[in-house]
Write a protein that binds this DNA or RNA. Structure first.
Length: 506
RNA sequence: GCCCCCAUCGUCUAGGGGUUAGGACACAGGAUUUUCGAUCCUGCAGCAGGGGUUCGAAUCCCCUUGGGGGUGCCA
């Protein structure tokens, strides 16, 4: 059996697209699963689209996601360099070979001439707007011109490209791992440029050459590449190489079915209707858990299968459960709601001490680190199930570290009635006498006071919650009071009793 | 235009000749006489349309429709 070697081959054109990350993930999972090698190759052959720092961006995101390449620009490897821009002589050599074999030719057509051809101004082009077998004889290339003419243009330094001479009557067939048999008629395919006039290769040449040289066993990439498969297949054939297995992944779209575009988005919290941010780093910045993002995109086009309803996966679980055979064919829509839910679920799975360590910088920043770890851990345990994001800790949990400075307006109106002050004061007097300030004892006191006054527990519970936390929602009241401690509770209630009736006058 | 791909609840999907078409998110309702942004329970909601094949089709075939990709000296 052939060793599994897969590559993630992004073009460094700026930000990291959510779809790119999924492609990287699927490649990574496949590699890990087959004890294979995961390779990062930077496809930076378009100098006009070069973006400073884009590669570093890419590497940083992969690193953050835990999708570390086994071979790549950073870690090196036996098949480097892993930047295509550093491999131009290799591509030129193979392009030359193709020319010598008669599978490729030189073309001198200017952009304007190509434009004219596509606009159908040339007689022949009424048949086709492609640069193909029907039209190449009427263009300015080494197939249509005499050797002398070509020599002359070359000597004059005329800019030219190398084109693949696509056969006229052929059917190319691929057995795609996700799509099954797909056929392409070579007549529909143009004479692809392999080498641009600046000497750099196009994707097609570089891709085929590198995949072969780097001994890639499986090409797992987005569906946008499916149409170029016949060109690639023909190249493999010309070189006499065995093509790798191929798998074309379904695309990921906006909720409205449009392409996810960075242009649509300014802010993750104010998304235009039907749009979603394609930039992975926006989600990182918003505080989404790495596991949640990977989990969410893993499920976009893949599922564990019949009889398996698991939704929440760690990266390790993805590795053991994933299979390329279970990747589906239809495009998926990115669902922010599900990401949010997964984020919560992933947060719930984390041990409290792990979260505490992640929270430390924020605790220090706020001076909340005066509290002992045991206290912080207890707060985390109380809050954990309610956190949408880890950073919610600093808003939902403020009152565990600071006295409330304001009280929720709606709760204030809803829960603080005329007789509340008396009930609350009586409750304070009673708990003040407690020697053991634990949830059970506190509850006992509260129930007693409520019974004495013939009111439901809620009549006291809600006002107390409001008084000590300022919020109307939160963890169970008695655990909360226990953790806060008697002194703090008594102090806060005393203050609330002073402040709240006054607030209500307003 | 041409080529290619795709089509099950709003969304992600299971199911691939006989199922009350299953699950998850979201949404709605209920429970928790202690809140909800927690938890549990229930509900809502789907095989794009039309033809075939078959005793029987969501499932196989064809057409239509819809969506998407490609058609670049972009990747």
């Amino acid at each position: 059996m052939v060793a599994v070697r897969v590559r993630f081959a992004p073009s460094p054109t700026g930000f990291v697209h959510i779809g790119s990350l999924r492609t990287a993930l699927y490649n990574f999972l496949f590699a890990r699963q087959h004890q294979g090698t995961f390779i990062l190759r930077i496809e930076d052959t378009d100098r006009t689209r070069f973006v400073e720092g884009a590669t570093e961006n890419m590497i940083r995101v992969l690193d953050w996601a835990g999708l570390m390449p086994d071979e790549g620009p950073q870690q090196g490897g036996p098949f480097g360099p892993y930047f295509q821009s550093e491999r131009t002589e290799i591509y030129q050599r193979f392009a030359q070979q193709l020319i010598e074999q008669g599978h490729a030719y030189l073309a001198f057509d200017s952009p304007a001439e190509l434009e004219e051809m596509r606009n159908g101004k040339l007689a022949v082009s009424r048949i086709s707007t492609r640069y193909n077998h029907q039209i190449r004889q009427s263009m300015r290339n080494s197939l249509a011109m005499s050797a002398a003419e070509v020599e002359q243009l070359l000597a004059a330094g005329e800019p030219h490209v190398v084109r693949l001479k696509m056969p006229a009557e052929r059917v190319f067939n691929v057995d795609d791992l996700v799509r099954g048999q797909v056929n392409f008629d070579s007549r529909e395919i143009d004479d692809q440029i392999l080498l641009k006039s600046d000497g750099y290769p196009t994707y097609h040449l570089a891709n085929v050459v590198d995949d072969h040289l780097m001994q890639i066993s499986h090409v797992i990439r987005g569906e946008e590449w499916l149409s170029s498969v016949p060109k690639h297949l023909f190249l493999y054939e010309c070189f006499g190489w065995t093509p790798p297995k191929m798998a074309h992944l379904p695309l990921i779209f906006n909720p409205d079915g449009s392409k996810m575009s960075k242009r649509d988005i300014t802010n993750l919290s104010e998304l235009p209707a039907g749009k979603v941010d394609p930039d992975v780093e926006s989600y990182i910045r918003a505080g989404f858990e790495c596991d949640a993002i990977l989990n969410a995109i893993a499920l976009l086009g893949w599922n564990p299968g019949e009889g398996d309803d698991q939704q929440v996966f760690s990266l390790a679980e993805l590795i053991s459960n994933y299979s390329l055979e279970r990747v589906n064919k239809s495009a998926a829509i990115f669902d922010l709601q599900k990401l949010r839910w997964l984020n919560k679920e992933q947060l719930k799975k984390q041990p409290a001490d792990v979260l505490l360590n992640r929270l430390r910088p924020g605790l220090e920043e706020r001076g909340w680190n005066r509290k002992p770890d045991s206290y912080c851990l207890a707060v985390i345990e109380l809050l954990q199930a309610r956190l949408g994001f880890l950073h919610d800790f600093f808003t939902y949990g403020t009152y565990f570290f600071e006295d409330p400075t304001e009280y929720d307006d709606k709760a204030l109106k809803k829960y603080w009635k005329a007789q509340t002050t008396n009930l609350v004061l009586e409750f304070v007097r009673e708990i003040d006498k407690l020697d053991r300030f634990f949830a059970a004892e506190i509850e006992e006191v509260l129930r007693r006071v409520a019974e004495r006054h013939q009111v439901g527990g809620g009549q006291i519970i809600h006002p107390i919650r409001l008084a000590v936390s300022g919020f109307s929602v939160g963890p169970g009241l008695f655990e909360l009071l226990e953790l806060l401690g008697k002194d703090t509770v008594v102090k806060r209630i005393a203050k609330a009793v002073e402040v709240i009736p006054a607030l209500q006058q307003q």
